[in-house]
């Protein structure tokens, strides 16, 4: 505002600046440094050059397994969750009387889903004689050993996170509701079917929120910790041993801070590369209203 010192705004953002330097920027750089050291918390960090990374990529079977499981987890969970969230949002985006009731019912799991209590619940409903197997028995399906089989254990965590599709859905729904209705009318008069309208009008118009959800959900999925820590404890046979779990164990159980930092940096670089790819590709598929590109 006129007349004020041009530094006045800096005073207001100063808490952020201090916090950024102390709790984000400094730790960010420090973890990069630590990843080149050997540090057990007791002595001082000892510089070891590329040794941690060399071990990670050449000799560490646990890392190979953990990385593979993490990628499988992210690339199944994120698309499943987003497609499901979009599907429900589309179904809800109709002049239904009970829209608010449904929106609430669907949103409750994402409010609670991060809670340890829900992870505990998941342990029980997927137990051998738990709710899911009892439900399947009603349809004559043989009980499944969800946590005992490396092929299904990870899927229970995927299901937990898909169950929390509510916040992505609310964002989709808000976007769908802001689409100009006259576009639909024009298309319907021109004889477009429902699928065509969805595919060629609705979908392009909501690409910005698809993009937003995609990025946020991916970054989040790569950091999944509570699910595998509580529900499956990384097992069986490390089939749910996601990288954040491995980092936690290395850092806070083995106290190998240098090695844990190296794993964290590999995870960070993967997330960053994927995010950059997403941003770069968004020029080709994300449509911003008012943009002149066709």
């Amino acid at each position: 505002m006129g007349g004020d010192s041009k530094y006045l705004g800096l005073w207001y953002v100063s808490p952020y600046i201090i916090g950024l330097l102390l709790f984000t920027a400094f730790p960010f750089l420090a973890s990069f440094y630590l990843s080149f050291t050997d540090y057990d918390l007791l002595s001082t960090p000892e510089w070891v050059g590329m040794k941690n990374y060399e071990k990670l990529f050449t000799r560490d079977r646990t890392f190979d397994k953990s990385l593979k499981v993490t990628l499988i987890y992210v690339f199944t969970t994120v698309p499943l969750k987003l497609v499901f969230a979009l599907f429900i949002a589309v179904v809800l985006n109709y002049r239904l009387k009970a829209i608010n009731l449904f929106r609430t019912a669907y949103y409750v799991p994402s409010i609670l889903g991060g809670s340890i209590a829900i992870a505990v619940l998941w342990r029980y409903i997927f137990a051998d004689t738990g709710l899911v197997n009892m439900g399947l028995a009603l349809f004559g399906v043989e009980p499944i050993n969800w946590f005992g089989d490396p092929n299904t254990a990870l899927f229970t965590i995927t299901l937990l996170r898909c169950w929390q599709f509510g916040s992505a859905m609310v964002i989709f729904l808000a976007a769908l509701q802001s689409v100009d209705k006259s576009l639909y009318e024009a298309a319907a008069i021109d004889g477009a079917g429902q699928w065509q309208i969805f595919r060629y009008i609705t979908l392009p118009l909501i690409t910005p929120v698809i993009f937003f959800n995609l990025i946020m959900q991916t970054v989040q999925a790569f950091q999944e910790f509570n699910g595998p820590y509580i529900i499956t404890e990384g097992g069986p046979l490390k089939s749910t041993y996601l990288l954040p779990l491995y980092i936690y164990d290395e850092a806070f159980k083995s106290f190998d801070m240098g090695y844990a930092s190296a794993i964290a940096w590999v995870l960070f670089v993967i997330i960053m590369v994927l995010t950059l790819i997403a941003f770069w590709s968004s020029k080709k598929w994300v449509y911003y209203a008012g943009d002149k590109r066709s």
């Binding site: 952020y16 950024l20 102390l22 709790f23 984000t24 400094f26 730790p27 960010f28 420090a30 973890s31 630590l34 990025i215 970054v219 790569f222 950091q223 990288l243 954040p244 980092i247 850092a251 806070f252 801070m257 844990a260 930092s261 964290a264 940096w265 995870l267 960070f268 997330i271 995010t275």
Partner: peptide, 20 residues
């Protein structure tokens, strides 16, 4: 930096934060 922090995975800052 606000936007960058929004996307920055906490996992990468957690260990030095603990040490701090």
């Amino acid at each position: 930096t606000v936007i960058a922090t929004l996307l920055l995975p906490n996992v990468v800052t957690r260990i030095p934060q603990y040490l701090l």
